[in-house]
Amino acid sequence: MLTRTGAAVGISTVALLAAGILAGYPELVMIGLAGVVALVVAALWMLLRPQIGAVREIRPHRVTEGNPARAVLTVKNTGTRRSPPLVVTETVADQRVTVPLPSLAAGASHETTYPLPTGRRGRYSIPALMVGHSDPLRLMYVGSPCSGGSVLYVHPRIHHVVPVALGGPRDMEGPTSSRSPQGGIAFHSLRDYQPGDDWRLIDWKSTARTGSLVVRHNVIPDEPQHLIVLDTSSEPYSGSSFEDAVRVAASLCSAASQAAFPIDLRLTAEDALPSGDSELGALDLLAGAEPGPADPGLSTLADLLNDVLAGSDGTVLAVVTGRASSRDIDILSSLGQRFLTVSLVQISERPTAAPRGVIAVNASTSDRFAALWNQLVPQ
């Protein structure tokens, strides 16, 4: 394909030939013919397409916004003749990255690294890189996809905040269930001995009664689940407040996870994917979160939390939004008694008054939120 320079040469060539023939100026015709020769030579050069193999690796696949990430590119000349200088083109976060490569002898390889743009949070699908070459005059360019696509997660920045500690004190002999993780000191049930069980857990009275080895099944007591809801509708936000709201949600998820509380992150978008119960899953989900005008927002909060409301386990709820509407406040107020604690974070210059019994934090930025939250929530 023609480059911009090649297209300009082609147009100029046609114009010069036409002007020279019509006006009877052989000099213009000669210049036009020189352009024809240059284009023909460039086309013949393109036929000598090098045989190149390339492998790209993203290191790391997950970073926090502003932290460095790079691509490691290994290129090998699999042909029998020396390859010309090449150009590798990447498109990341709508930014075009061009990497020049040197000429390679037959069988030789070259490794290079180059930075990827990570200044803005996002989930970036990086298509297969394009490896191409051009003629010496840069009149034509031929590129072909090489290697596969990749995904780069740029996570939101996280502030150090304390988890909500108002969901009840931690009880080492607290409530347990069959889904509780093993390895604690809280007794849940008796079960048959399995190879590898600690002999100190054998219940000798039950063993004597049943005639087979029986052990105590100890688990870690159930802890209050921390449920974080991020409003992803566009109406409550202005300016860059949505980015601050995402950082707030990420900070709450990280704080609960670091304190070993189960977490559950949910977005109000109807097509939002589940985050799983891990901090990494939550951050991956937040990396791709975007506000949408068709998003129902907090108006469907009851439906969004229907499975949680139907359960019997204790849950700590935190809702993050921009400026909550009066309807949002009414919905939150009606649901407040169903949770151990309810927090409402509004990233807005003009927040709406929160209902009674709700931990309310109103801040204009995520930095301000972190400072207010750590003052309000006991450590």
Rank of each mutant, 00 (worst) to 15 (best):
W45N: 04
Y25T: 05
L48W: 11
P50C: 09
G32E: 02
A54V: 15
E57G: 07
L73V: 15
H61W: 13
P60L: 09
V55H: 14
V72T: 15
G20V: 02
R56T: 07
A43V: 08
E65H: 07
L47V: 11
P60Y: 09
L73W: 08
A42K: 01
L73M: 14
A38L: 10
A71F: 09
A54M: 15
G24V: 04
E65Q: 14
L22T: 09
Q51H: 12
E57C: 10
A34I: 00
L33K: 01
L28G: 02
P68Q: 03
E57I: 15
V29Y: 03
G35V: 01
L22R: 06
I52W: 07
I31L: 11
I58V: 15
Q51A: 12
E57L: 15
L73Q: 09
H61S: 14
A38K: 00
G32H: 00
I58E: 08
G66F: 14
I31Q: 00
A23F: 08
G35F: 02
P68H: 04
A34E: 00
V36G: 00
E65C: 11
A38I: 00
T74R: 13
P50L: 09
V29K: 02
G53T: 10
I58L: 15
V37F: 05
I52P: 01
V63Y: 08
L73C: 10
M46D: 10
R62C: 12
I58C: 12
I21F: 12
P68R: 06
A34V: 00
M30F: 07
R59W: 09
M46G: 08
V63G: 07
P50I: 10
E27P: 01
R49A: 15
A43L: 09
Y25M: 11
V40K: 01
T74A: 12
L47K: 14
A54D: 06
I58A: 11
P50G: 08
A34L: 10
G35A: 01
A34R: 02
P60E: 07
V40P: 06
W45G: 01
V40F: 05
V41M: 07
W45T: 06
V55A: 13
R49P: 06
V72A: 13
L22Q: 04
I52N: 05
L22C: 03
L47S: 12
V37H: 02
L28M: 13
L47Q: 14
N67C: 10
A38E: 05
Q51K: 11
G20R: 02
M46F: 06
I21Q: 06
L48V: 14
L48S: 13
T74H: 11
N67T: 12
G53C: 04
A71D: 04
R70S: 15
A34C: 04
V37Y: 03
G66N: 14
L44G: 08
R59M: 12
E27D: 08
L28V: 05
Y25C: 05
E57P: 09
V63A: 08
G24S: 05
G24A: 04
G20W: 03
V37P: 00
I52D: 04
V40G: 05
P50K: 10
I31S: 02
V29M: 10
G35E: 00
G24F: 05
V55I: 13
L22P: 02
